[in-house]
């Protein structure tokens, strides 16, 4: 009788601990994602300045500037799912990259202090976003591990927890940049 009571008590305790640990891991992943979100907004906040700095020069690339303005409007509106945020981040990274490459064609623009500062700020946000992505992926790995490993997988199944997806970066970004082709023109 006593033994049954002890075993039950221990089992309940273990379930509670597993439950709490899973909740903590889930929340950590959510917090990590919101950090990415904040940094993405920070990057979009630099966009108006970027456009102001480059639009005088980039008459031919006006399309790119319109694209990025539209993206910023979407980001600021704030109603996006995680997947949409990830997608928008990918696209914005590409477009900003294109603007930076195009800027190489305008020596005056490149020489201006204003543009150099902006480039430094963008580099910094870019680096912070990459750090936030890594932090998010680390917490997702933790969470997914808990979902698959015994015995927390049983509790997770009861809680209907599902595996989260990693924040992947676009294939183009992962491929090594061919510096030669950038300067070929």
């Amino acid at each position: 009788m006593v033994i049954t009571a002890i075993v039950t008590a221990v089992a309940v305790l273990v379930v509670i601990l597993l439950f709490n640990s899973l909740v903590r891991k889930k929340n950590q992943a959510i917090t990590a994602f919101s950090t990415i979100d904040v940094l993405l907004k920070k990057r979009f906040d630099l966009i108006p300045n970027l456009i102001k700095a480059v639009q005088r020069y980039m008459q031919h690339e006006a399309g790119v500037l319109t694209d990025i303005t539209a993206m910023r409007a979407k980001a600021v509106s704030g109603e996006m799912s995680d997947a949409e945020t990830a997608d928008l981040d990918r696209k914005a990274t590409q477009v900003i990259g294109r603007i930076m490459v195009a800027a190489e064609n305008y020596p005056d623009l490149k020489a201006s202090q204003n543009f150099a500062d902006l480039q430094a700020s963008l580099n910094e946000v870019e680096e912070q976003i990459s750090a936030a992505r890594r932090a998010y992926n680390a917490s997702v790995r933790d969470y997914n591990n808990a979902l698959e490993m015994f015995p927390s997988n049983i509790v997770a199944a009861l809680m209907h927890y599902r595996k989260r997806v990693f924040f992947e970066i676009a294939e183009q970004e992962r491929a090594n940049v061919d510096v030669g082709s950038l300067f070929a023109s």
């Binding site: 990590a32 950090t35 680096e127 912070q128 990459s130 750090a131 936030a132 890594r134 932090a135 680390a138 917490s139």
Partner: peptide
């Protein structure tokens, strides 16, 4: 800070 540490310790 998990993010700051990764910002400093880039790959």
């Amino acid at each position: 800070d998990q993010v700051e540490a990764r910002y400093i310790l880039s790959t």
